[in-house]
Nucleic acid binder design. Structure first.
Length: 800
RNA sequence: GCGGGUAUGGCGGAAUUGGCAGACGCACAGGAUUUAGGAUCCUGCGGGAAACCGUGCAGGUUCGACCCCUGUUACCCGCACCA
């Protein structure tokens, strides 16, 4: 047949759409499969070949599942709130709504050109009222549950985007969006109390099937640590200084203390501190340092000793000095530590620089040289002396602290509460009203959605306040509780909000009375398989697991964990081996590939280019190789002779069907395609195949190259759609060759090969090997020591 | 610094998990066909005349190691003064 891919692809896309064969059904009696891919942010640049690879994986799995008789939900949508759109709108004067609509349209047409089997009746757009109503609804539920709070803190502020950023969005001291330097600023910030869910999020990982490195990254992100809180008595003060430590066993070695520069005790006892000016100067200096400077100066410790207040080491009873230093941070633990220079590297560096006493309490290292952090025998530690393990010493010390009532076991997390607001326009309005009498009051549920008002100038105000603050009719309102005059919150939610529950909405995308019908949730959840990028396994996945777990706790969803399985695809690099980026000019546009080679080639290539989970560079030549493969497939109908089985090809067919079936489950798409290429080579060599064989071949190729396969199916007179027909089966017995060639080794080196029956007896195999000329020559004059035969694989004769 | 991962032809990558290393594809070379080919079809393709040598490097275990163990180097990805 002629492989006119452009017409073939259009023809089948139209037919699929018309017949609606990829729509998930609400027949809940059938077994279901919910495959989820990360919905795209509809940027102005359009799609990227990376998107294609990201979706192609589960596309193949979903198509296979349908052919296996599952009711498949494979949805798509758009995570459309966000800064790039807003910034573009500010620059061009075009309303973000229009920009978003235009971009979604572009993405939709690109996705459809590739022939993805998404259920287009369930598209979710996070900026639609019908959707963000429920985003706000969930927020309100969290507010009711006490998981929302407001606090004045130093925040990461981007002076360019004029927006407050979460810690996650400002890593490395650079803005995640514009990559400019971030400054610290004091602001009122909305927080979601995600730390309350730290343990639940950690425990939830035990029940799910995530790639090991995905799980590990989440564990590290949550960062649970077990230790102790201890209260140190102070001189010249009525209160104690509370610290957190994981090494209370080393307390006898604590020769000083360190508190964060922002620690409140300084201000509180300013009048008793002799060098308060010096401390304040240091504090100011620290505030000016960028994140970058701080991390660069890790080894070069700075600090100031507090004069006028000291601490008492509760183990030794000795007075020890207190320093302020920026190597201790207010945001972790209590903002204060006991410093044990002999057994902590940071404390060691500090003590060396400031000439503080270093007392060894664990044997094993050389404290003249460096801090020793390993295990060993306790010394200089009174009642701990002689103990040989950390674990035992910690237990004993905890007992002592408990008896004296000055300390107890404690747990800390690295994860911080989630800064949940942006002073920007293009986001979900936060449904809260500030009443001078009642305080913060939630917008009543029946008034949701709280609509994002239309406006002309959505540039943020100079002070960084939300553009919504400029609309008086929006800001001024009445308190739902007392009916008095009140002001509406003008901040909006961060981009992560909409993507924190979109997978629930897909199960019932148009429901006006609930986020989704409970019956639908019960049937479809959890997501059976979620695939996406590694860059989303911490932030997006942790946030969405948190929201989902909250919804479970209040009885809104039926399962604890939203994602039963999580995998991740590798990046597609540019032809130069570098990460694709506009500035490098190495971006490949999927449209160009579809124009020149067809959508089927694009799909096959993105899956064939290498291990699905690894990064691989784009190669135009390899794309051509995939085109050649499909050209050869297109010529197979011309080689059909008769029906039934071609004896020479029978085993190849059964083997290939088996391999492709298994490889798809393990995301080994590259080897699945390689196996199908091999089969085509076998068929070409053979010269012909039967109609039945071709039908089974296009069956297994269909998830990869559906347009071409449908076309061949039609030529062969198939009824309905190949995509809706049954997945080819194989006979295990026929995947095994009756005869195999095995290698014969002499002393571990291959000296020849012999062909034997698969089930040949060892004695026969050895006899046949010895009869082989080459083998006999090698064995001549030698004495056989040992003969090892691994059935069907190898024969090794050890001889001297 | 800590944690995780990777290392195989000129290139992308395979290898039933301890059993013929280099499947499949690309590139390259030779041939056929063609007015022509950047189209198609054959053939060859790790190195070496060969004996042999070859999975980052050095050892070890084993009849047998890309695979397991010890040490080492390089690169990639997370986290990063987390007490």
């Amino acid at each position: 047949m002629k492989y006119d891919f452009a017409n073939i692809e259009k023809k089948w896309q139209d037919k699929w759409e018309e017949a609606g064969i990829f729509h998930a059904s609400e027949d809940h009696s059938k077994p279901k499969f919910y495959g989820l891919v990360e919905f795209p942010y509809p940027s102005g640049a359009g799609m990227h070949v990376g998107h294609i690879k990201a979706y192609s994986g589960l596309e193949v799995v979903s198509r296979k599942r349908r052919m296996q008789g599952y009711n498949v939900l494979f949805p798509i949508g758009f995570d459309a709130y966000g800064l790039p759109t807003e910034n573009y709108a500010i620059k061009t004067g075009m309303h973000p709504r229009l920009v978003t609509d235009k971009n979604i349209e572009k993405f939709t047409s690109q996705l459809k050109r590739v022939g993805f089997s998404f259920d287009w009746t369930r598209v979710v757009d996070t900026t639609e009222e019908g959707y963000y109503k429920w985003t706000q609804w969930i927020f309100r539920k969290m507010f009711d549950a006490g998981l929302v709070f407001r606090a004045t803190t130093l925040v990461n502020y981007c002076p360019v985007c004029k927006v407050v950023l979460s810690n996650e969005d400002s890593q490395g001291g650079k803005c995640d969006i514009c990559h400019n330097d971030i400054v610290q600023k004091s602001k009122d910030v909305w927080y979601l109390r995600i730390t309350e869910y730290a343990d639940k999020l950690l425990q939830g990982l035990e029940k799910v099937d995530y790639l090991p490195n995905v799980k590990l990254q989440q564990e590290n992100w949550i960062g649970r640590s077990e230790g102790a809180f201890v209260n140190f008595a102070l001189t010249n003060c009525d209160e104690t200084l509370r610290i957190y430590t994981t090494r209370c066993d080393t307390m006898f070695g604590a020769t000083f203390m360190v508190i964060a520069p922002e620690h409140p005790i300084i201000e509180k006892y300013a009048d008793r501190i002799a060098n308060i000016d010096e401390l304040n100067a240091y504090k100011e200096e620290c505030a000016k340092k960028t994140e970058f400077e701080r991390t660069q100066l890790v080894k070069d410790k700075t600090g100031v000793c507090i004069k006028g207040i000291a601490a008492i080491n509760p183990a030794t009873g000795k007075e020890i000095p207190i320093y302020i230093s920026d190597y201790v941070m207010m945001g972790y633990g209590t903002g204060a530590i006991m410093a044990v220079p002999a057994h902590d590297e940071r404390d060691y560096d500090f003590a060396k620089k400031f000439g503080i006493e270093i007392i060894e309490v664990i044997k094993g290292g050389n404290i003249e040289e460096a801090a020793y952090t390993g295990d060993g025998e306790m010394v200089n530690s009174a009642f701990l002396n002689g103990i040989k393990t950390k674990k035992e010493a910690i237990a004993k010390m905890l007992e002592y602290l408990g008896e004296k009532g000055i300390g107890e076991k404690g747990v800390q997390y690295k994860m911080k509460d989630w800064a949940f607001n942006r002073q920007r326009y293009w986001g979900e309005p936060i449904p809260i009203i500030h009443c001078p009498k009642c305080g913060m009051v939630g917008v009543p549920y029946e008034e949701l959605p709280l609509r994002l008002p239309n406006m002309e100038n959505f540039a943020p105000g100079e002070g960084g306040e939300s553009p919504l603050a400029k609309i008086e009719s929006y800001v001024n309102c009445t308190c739902p509780k007392c009916g008095g005059a009140a002001k509406r919150e003008t901040d909006t939610m961060p981009q992560w909000a909409g993507s924190s529950w979109y997978f629930l909405r897909y199960t019932d995308a148009h429901n006006e009375n609930a986020l989704a019908d409970p019956e639908n949730l019960k049937y479809w959840m959890p997501v059976d398989w979620y695939n996406g990028g590694m860059e989303h396994v911490t932030r997006h996945m942790i946030y969405s697991r948190f929201w989902h777990r909250f919804l479970y706790d209040i009885g809104e969803v039926p399962v604890e964990e939203p994602y039963a399985k999580r995998t991740a695809q590798g990046l597609i690099l540019g032809p130069d081996g570098e990460k694709m980026s506009k500035s490098k000019g190495n971006v490949v546009d999927p449209n160009d590939v579809v124009d020149e080679y067809g959508a089927d080639v694009l799909r096959v290539y993105t899956l064939f280019m290498g291990d699905y989970a690894s990064a691989a560079p784009w190669s135009e030549n390899s794309v051509k190789g995939c085109k050649r493969f499909l050209d050869r497939v297109a010529s197979l109908p011309d080689m059909v002779k008769g029906s039934g089985v071609t004896p020479k090809l029978e085993t190849s067919f059964h083997k290939t069907i088996k391999k492709v079936s298994q490889d798809i489950e393990e995301m080994k798409f590259n080897t699945a395609i390689a196996a199908m290429m091999s089969l085509v080579n076998d068929i070409t060599e053979c010269g012909s195949l039967t109609k039945d064989e071709l039908v089974s071949f296009i069956g297994i190729l269909c998830p990869f190259a559906p347009h071409l396969c449908e076309e061949i199916w039609e030529i062969l007179g198939g009824e309905g759609f190949l995509s809706a027909s049954a997945w080819p089966t194989y006979d295990e017995a026929k995947t095994v060759d009756s005869e195999v060639e095995i290698a014969v080794q002499i002393c571990g080196k291959v000296r020849g090969t012999i062909t034997i029956a698969v089930d040949a007896a060892q004695a026969d195999v050895i006899a046949k090997a010895k009869a082989d000329e080459k083998i006999a020559a090698q064995l001549a004059g030698k004495q056989i020591v040992k003969e090892i035969y691994i059935p069907g694989k190898i024969l090794n004769i050890v001889a001297k």
